[in-house]
Amino acid sequence: MKKIFIVAPLLFLSACSDKWGWYVVDPSLPSGWSNLRFLLSGLYYTILLSLSAIVISIVVGLLIALPGLSAKPVLRRFNRIYVEGVRAVPILVLILWVYYGLPQVADISIGVFAAGVIALALSDSAFEAEIFRAGIQSIDKGQYEAAHSVSLNYSDTMRFVILPQAIRRILPALGNQLVYMLKMSSLVSVIGMQELTRKANELVVSEYRPLEIYTILVLEYLVLILVVSAGVRWLERRFQTDQRN
């Protein structure tokens, strides 16, 4: 942690040297200010894309995880095939396939945003399914037996007894996935999604100052993810204060 006090000034000094041309993003200059605003305007889609994808992938992941816990081999096999299959495809490939391939196969037209959300959510759902399965399996068998003894059916047992406890345990893992999703959303830039990375690429092409612009891009992701991590930790603490055996 102390290293930051040595590294930061060095970075600052090097940033002041004549190799750098900070004027492209200097907020005191009219052109720099408008460039900076252009870069930051990508934040909206980065966040919207990641949040939509994570919400969908959590729901889909849960629906995929539950058959994986079933006593019926057919359902467990379905879970395995889905998880192994989806996990094996690189996200970038999935994005390209959903955007260029899916409209042809399914005979539908699909926007950049929708394609991005579908690809990210699909890819992440396999990981969410594994996280949920592990979380649910970590709950003591006695909890199911107690739920059975007070006559709860399967869905009530899951909804009121098992999942609330499992969610608390998997919250750190879910936070990780959200951070991962924020980073992976940069890949959707390849199909033209106007998020952070795409904006930076476009500005690099017109201004030709990749060093400064990509440095700003790095900082944008860094700040965004630090804020999200702090939020997740706050949520974890809130969940832990009221209960737990």
Binding site: F160, R168, Q243, R244
Partner: peptide, 17 residues
């Protein structure tokens, strides 16, 4: 469900409630 209740060795209370 209508007839039988059970008390367990490990209590098995719901810890989050």
């Amino acid at each position: 469900r209508a007839n039988v209740g059970m008390v367990f060795q490990q209590f098995n209370l719901f810890p989050h409630l």
